[in-house]
């Protein structure tokens, strides 16, 4: 009865993704911290597991995230209530200006972040602390 085949799904045009098997990320979300734990029942040890990055998937909002959101908002095209914004932006894009500007901003953010991380963790948790004004 154990078969490797799932009932052929295909959500049926509902406009959502219906993968027939889980991605590695999906699997990691599921099988590493959920399910029965055998050594609570039985005295055996787990085999050596080469997994170092489980915690890396926990979402921690950081200054890095904030700066990325801010830049995304900065680049946001709100065509409804900013008639002027759109043509400007289009022009910038066609000249390649927007792209290089964006790149500069991201690099600058990265530099700043490195400075930040280089100092100490207190500076990071302070969040809004500003360096070297």
């Amino acid at each position: 009865m154990t078969t490797a085949v799932q009932p052929a799904g295909g959500g049926g045009g509902g406009g959502f993704d219906r993968p027939s098997s889980s991605s590695l990320a999906d699997v990691i979300d599921t099988i590493l911290d959920k399910g029965l734990v055998i050594d609570a029942y039985v005295r055996v040890s787990l085999v050596g597991i080469e997994l170092l990055t489980i915690d890396a998937r926990i979402v921690v909002a950081s200054v890095d995230t904030y700066l990325r959101f801010a830049e995304a908002v900065n680049r946001l095209d709100i065509s409804d209530n900013e008639q002027k914004g759109l043509p400007d932006l289009m022009q910038d894009m066609s000249q390649g200006g927007a792209r290089s500007k964006t790149k500069g901003a991201i690099e600058a953010a990265g530099d700043k972040l490195r400075d930040f991380l280089g100092e100490d963790e207190q500076a990071q948790s302070a969040g809004r602390g500003r360096k070297g004004d």
Partner: peptide
């Protein structure tokens, strides 16, 4: 009943 990854007896 799924066991968590890595269970060995």
């Amino acid at each position: 009943l799924p066991l968590r990854f890595g269970a060995v007896l």
